[in-house]
Design a protein around this nucleic acid. Structure first.
Lengths: 349, 349
DNA sequence: CTGAAAGCGCTTACAG
DNA sequence: CTGAAAGCGCTTACAG
């Protein structure tokens, strides 16, 4: 038997009035059942609930939204060029939102465009977004957060540092993660260790650099300034930085790349120079994007629980939106961990 | 001076009533201006338009939708594991939709789930989606198209074969593209040519196989059944299929992988066997995903204009939705083209 | 060319 | 515990 939800074309959708008529009550009472008001007699409630179930009625989100002054729409703002990263956050968030009847409106942006902040303002007010999830690196932009606060739009920033109050954050502990990389390299016996950082203005670059450098120091190793290169989290910058680092004498035996894209750039330079990985050079990435396992040899890297971050951000946002009041000021943190593959080994000399 | 659109928190949004009052007309007349009705005196129209502009008024999409029985929401359904592919279609579509005031609601799905069709039905009826864009491979599912037709939801399928009427399609001409690969390999002098196809149930697998095999035949070359392996468009299947193909004697000198992921799997097997690319083995991919240029050596592959496909699908869908009637039965086709990189060369022997 | 009334499908006060 | 009225912000007939 075909469930009643599977209405065929031509039958129009049931409305709250249909349900009220069938149940022989006012639509207000149906509304109470929908919104789980306690002020409905149990017998009435069950009867109406049963009719709702059997007719497959679902309240119209537009009408509900209009009356509630809610859109049931959450924005996802990103400028991250790493597609798997975005998709994973997106799917994580989607999973959490669906359950509570929200939809996700995606919004790629360009933080350098002069219309950037105006666009966001317009998006929020126009679509009356109920909240916003912001991905790194644009999540580091405080001006954006200020705008959202200004127009009273609840938001969650996914970040690697505490740039905001804890209730607005899902924080990835990059500093501690970078320390894991240091430990791994130290254990393998590397001493000439280099690092390619991301754009210095990005908070994650600083976090990873400091975490890495401090952890090396703790083990009696130093990250010499000669061995630090400024990349841009891109393939091309990785190749160029590796070119520079590998020209140093003595040559580093290990390079910690800012992310997997950068690491792929290091692979390319090693390939062009005929260096064998990991025999001549150990390479470590960050992200564990699909690329990491596709490279030959496969890349040792830090895995971020990206999907979880999306889910956590959505859950935290929803609780902010629906909560009439109450703190939930707790921090939400997440820890990347090391995935050891083929690109790291003992130094040859 | 801050534009009026940049209202600060606390000021409530203007409504059509505010505009009517300011213009000293009825809200119906304002509505006519918003909807570009010809039945407004020019003087009145300009006056109202100016007030709308200066106040930064934008009509509430929810209220409009409720009255128009429109949601201004378009669904994007996908099950493609290739994240850059999805992101690119998404951004292409977004660009076209934004301009006309629509938003995109993304919906990853699992075509093998028993709830698959029911979920889609519910998504469409619940959010009252105005239309749907469907990505391959789930776009090949005719049952899904049947459901959408049944509930009168306009849709566009992005496909590599004409599985539907032209007005429902944005078609990528994979057959002709695969012929380009054949030509490239023939020109390089390869004769022992192998191919890894995608899942045989996928239409694109057949299209690419037939296009490739026929084009080889046209050049007096044959694609021997021994040299055809059935993959699954995945990294793992690429590695396994390459394992099999490279065990043949004589060994093929070139492998056309079904897509870039598969090609990456072939790289891995070549790496493990110590084969040099392209000296010992030429490899060709399909997609030109970011991975293609990250691999070492970089991968020769077919580039799909993925972003354009998203844009075209959105434009076509919008014209279907807004058009009161009229055919637009024209086919929309798109041609991938070859990007030659380092992984293809003359055969060694 | 313009407007007053009724309605889209739901909700919030306000009564009872 | 339940309902009749008014309203969210916009539109579509229907008049004039």
């Amino acid at each position: 038997m075909v469930p009643a939800t599977f209405r065929r074309a031509g039958e129009k959708k049931h409305t709250i009035n249909d349900i009220a008529r069938l149940a022989n009550v006012s639509k207000k009472t149906v509304s109470r059942v929908i919104n789980e008001s306690p002020f409905v007699r149990e017998e009435t409630r069950t009867r109406i609930a049963e009719i709702i179930r059997s007719t497959g009625f679902t309240p119209d989100p537009q009408a509900r939204g209009l009356a509630f002054r809610r859109s049931y729409l959450i924005g996802l703002v990103y400028d991250n060029p790493n597609a798997p990263y975005v998709i994973n956050v997106q799917e994580g968030a989607l999973g959490a939102l669906r359950r509570v009847g929200y939809e996700l409106v995606v919004h790629p942006c360009d933080r350098n465009s002069p219309e950037f902040l105006g666009d966001i303002r317009q998006l929020v007010s126009r679509q009356k977004l109920d909240g916003m999830i912001i991905l790194p690196p644009v999540s580091e932009n405080n001006a954006l957060a200020d705008v959202l606060r200004d127009i009273s739009c609840p938001y969650i920033r996914i970040l690697s540092a505490a740039l905001d109050e804890p209730q607005n954050l899902v924080q990835s502990m990059d500093r501690q993660s970078a320390a894991e990389v240091a430990e791994h390299l130290a254990k393998l016996g590397h001493t000439r260790i280099a690092m390619i950082i991301g754009p210095p203005t990005y908070r994650s670059s600083q976090e990873r650099l400091e975490g890495f450098s401090n952890a090396l120091a703790d083990r009696g190793l130093t990250l010499s300034p000669d061995y630090i290169a400024e990349g841009a989290y891109t393939f091309e910058s990785g190749a160029a930085c590796a070119e520079m680092l590998l020209s140093r004498s003595p040559r580093p035996t290990a390079i910690f790349a800012g992310n997997d894209e950068t690491a792929a750039g290091v692979y390319r330079t090693a390939y062009l120079r005929g260096l064998r990985i990991p025999h001549d050079l150990t390479i470590i990435g960050f992200d564990d994007s699909p690329l990491a396992s596709r490279l030959c040899p496969s890349l040792t890297t830090m895995r971020q629980p990206i999907r979880d971050m999306g889910r956590l951000a959505a859950e935290k946002l929803i609780s902010k939106i629906s909560r009439t009041e109450g703190p939930s000021a707790a921090a939400t943190t997440v820890f990347p961990h090391l995935v050891v593959r083929e690109s790291s080994g003992r130094p040859a000399n």
